[in-house]
Write a protein that binds this DNA or RNA. Structure first.
Length: 188
DNA sequence: CTTCGGATTGGCT
DNA sequence: GCCAATCCGAAGA
């Protein structure tokens, strides 16, 4: 991997569409991603500065930033830089194009379409967990999609209006958009 | 197809 | 203590 996947995450994110990401014996063609900029992006884990969890985001581009959410799920980002800047792109969904038998075993009961349709599902299908935080990412460019779309990022309460989610228009493996779930107010 | 609520743990204030 | 870059199953249209 090289220059094409490094730099401003807002520029890298659209280029990752149709690229093939391989991990744990499974390959996916990426169909949906989200850009997370540096400390100035209120939606980024890097917004409040460097901590033990997000250290990888502040390191060299080309590595995976993996984190654990909701007490049960993992999500994977490609760190893009630019160097010294904690930019990253969340890998939200893809189509399994190799190693599908292995992916099916990791996600029993799932249809092929749903194997990597969603950031936590993608991690499960590729066998990604915290042990993979900081490892080098294996990504090769693909043909530019005929059409792409962009819109608000999913599940965020901060900076929810920024259209920093990118996907391949009309692709069936793109996850369905859901706004951030409002938290139940106290006392009931 | 849609909406709704529960699961479950680590990170941060 | 509060909350999260989510998923799944159940129930309704």
């Amino acid at each position: 991997m090289a220059d094409w996947a490094e730099g401003d995450p807002l520029e890298v994110a659209p280029r990752l569409l149709n690229a093939v990401f391989t991990h744990g014996g499974v390959s996916v063609r990426l169909t949906e991603v989200e850009a997370y900029a540096g400390p100035e992006d209120p939606g980024s884990h890097a917004h409040r500065g460097r901590t033990e969890r997000n250290t990888v985001m502040f390191g060299a581009p080309g590595h995976l930033y993996v984190y654990f959410v909701y007490g049960m799920h993992h999500c994977a980002n490609l760190v893009t830089g630019p160097a010294g800047d904690p930019g990253a792109v969340l890998l939200r969904a893809g189509e399994v194009v190799d190693g599908i038998e292995l992916a099916r075993r990791r996600r029993p009961g799932s249809s092929d379409r749903d194997l990597a349709r969603g950031p936590a599902r993608l991690c499960r299908a590729l066998g990604i967990d915290l042990a993979d935080n900081g490892v080098r990412a294996e990504v090769v460019p693909g043909e530019a999609p005929l059409r792409t779309s962009s819109g608000p990022r999913v599940g965020l309460r901060q900076a929810a209006e920024r259209p920093w989610r990118f996907w391949v228009s009309g692709d069936p493996t793109v996850s369905t958009y859901r706004p951030a779930a409002p938290r139940r107010s106290a006392g009931r």
